[in-house]
Nucleic acid binder design. Structure first.
Lengths: 329, 329
DNA sequence: AGAATATAGGTAACCGCTCCCACCATGCCA
DNA sequence: TGGCATGGTGGGAGCGGTTACCTATATTCT
């Protein structure tokens, strides 16, 4: 390892100013020292091109200023949009996010979450793959964790933005029922099929209440696979779809087009999550909207507060809203 | 800061095994010690729940095992797909990526790139906002950097996957010309409009060669803004579009739909980059495909090799391919 | 058998910064 | 004029590892 251009250390700045390393450290962070000293240190630091080493700082202080973002499955376009939004919002708070992708795998989620903690992130935003994992209780013990989507079971989270999935499912199914659809294909995402995730349960319950005849199928987020699954359902005679992610609904659009079936006159599609793209399709995708901007704002506010040491410990229940655009006939 | 459950340190493992910390350190990494000792250390570590602290390790060794991924503008769906793909591919290599988003801002790119270096990532993949920034030369000095998209000017990169934008532009414009379009609206992305990015230059040159009448406009990646810009161009009478990112082309779809204009009979749209979504639209978006999987594989292979200390220093020129799907009438 | 060479493990100096604590001038009050 | 807060400063011990260098023992060779 040939050290590039050896970087200046705090000791060199100390020597240059005739102060102790400690004094320099304080001065750079504006504590306990006179204005005059601060100015002197600043000048010397600039001169030497000194910049504090974040790794050394993290080791000594246990803090890094970074916020971790652990996504359940970045393949989902909605989660991508969420990640981008959170990144930008944190930027506006002069923080920055380390984004990691669990790829829908609980084992990887376990590894990455601990890795993030060991990296000394000040706080963590997580969209859990498995909200019931014992991992979360352990993690919350020493690190503020804000969850999005589902509440973390048995853990003292620093904040939660939970979706009222029961209400969301009701909204979607009632809408389909009103439009006269009784026989439905329900495409749940792999993410949604986590053990204990109650979405499927809600679907079953609502289906019973509304006297619906549903067929539940698991579909991956990736467009190609979703298209394949959707095609199979179309071929099996299904003409009304409730998809547990907009990315999956896009697959229904593609599969329908392949077969020359027209939405919404011949096929009805209902999405879930409202991705920015969904309004651009023709016809626009009717979906359940969770107000992604609101979620981003709430989560970021909570995580920043927690990282600063004054956690709110609030739970925000996000109410769903039907975004009718014309894909349900 | 109430330390949660104080973690075991290497010294405790040393005490438990009767060895020196150094021996334990070696043993855990399988160097210079007997099999028997390694086994003994493993056992003791497991017993104590010891796990090496990555921060301390990074400070002492200068290595972390992580790979940084700095995206130019994560708002672009194509770059999102790229990020996801790279994340997964790295996972398959037992590495993991720290994803950061420069949000199209050269200043932020500067900050984040240095931050990543200071975090001691073993190597960096970057999709530069400003490939001509002096930053890169400085960074490449001590860190293997693999660039995607454009070559880094004046820097010794550890690998490059460059797009033959000249060929891509030619392909797109010739296709439009063949189909009889002479008057074109060209929507370049904010990313593409970086000073010195040659894409615009190619467009001008080709337009001259093909005797095209073009109007060049900058459009942001976000669907809403792209839709607005596209609408303005439609209202100005434009009916043929070349968009420098598929995400922008989606905006043309939306704006056309709003105005009751049908693609491809009344409006022609040509994309650039081929996002997975583009095949799902109706009609499918005709675009220039760069083989995203191939790019991911190449970049990851190079960056992993470089991180392991045997850089390839190769430049791969990605050839474009016309993906005709029916959006050009 | 004795010298030469491996091999296993110990010693201690870092890596660069933070923070507890002791220190030393002041200025103020009695 | 001496005792005492007060607040800016410096000393130095960590934080939890890694690694160059060195020693003692085991192995090999002549």
């Amino acid at each position: 390892m040939p050290q590039p251009r050896k970087r200046a250390t705090i000791r060199e700045v100390a020597k240059a100013t005739g102060l102790s390393p400690a004094a320099v450290s304080y001065a750079l962070r504006g504590m306990q020292v006179s204005e005059e000293t601060i100015e002197r240190v600043r000048r010397a630091a600039a001169e030497l091109g000194y910049e504090a080493d974040p790794i050394a700082r993290a080791l000594a202080s246990g803090r890094t200023g970074m916020i971790g973002l652990l996504c359940g499955s970045l393949e989902d376009l909605w989660q991508q949009a969420l990640a981008v939004g959170i990144g930008r919002a944190l930027k506006d708070n002069d923080r920055y996010a380390l984004i990691l992708d669990a790829a829908g795998d609980p084992a990887r989620e376990y590894t990455l979450a601990r890795q993030l903690r060991d990296q000394r992130v000040d706080a963590l935003i997580v969209q859990p793959v498995d909200p019931a994992a014992p991992l979360w209780a352990e993690l919350c013990e020493g690190l503020p964790v804000v969850s999005i989507g589902d509440a973390l079971a048995g853990a003292r989270a620093a904040g939660e933005v939970v979706f009222d999935n029961r209400a969301g499912v009701t909204l979607a199914l009632e809408h389909l029922r009103e439009r006269g659809h009784r026989r439905l294909a329900v495409l749940t995402s792999t993410r949604a099929s986590t053990p204990d995730r109650p979405a499927d349960v809600h679907v079953m319950a609502e289906a019973g209440r509304l006297d619906l005849d549903i067929e539940l199928v698991t579909a991956p987020h990736s467009p190609a696979s979703a298209t394949r699954v959707a095609g199979e359902m179309l071929d099996a005679g299904h003409r009304a779809f409730f998809c547990f992610a907009d990315s999956i609904a896009y697959g229904v659009y593609a599969a329908s087009a392949e077969r020359g079936l027209v939405i919404p006159s011949e096929v009805s599609v209902m999405g879930y999550d409202d991705h920015p793209m969904s309004g651009l399709l023709t016809p626009g995708l009717t979906t359940v909207d969770w107000d992604i901007d609101g979620i981003v704002r709430a989560a970021v506010r909570m995580v920043v507060a927690a990282a600063d040491g004054n956690p709110r410990r609030r739970r925000i229940v996000q109410a769903p809203q039907l975004r009718e655009r014309g894909s349900v006939g």
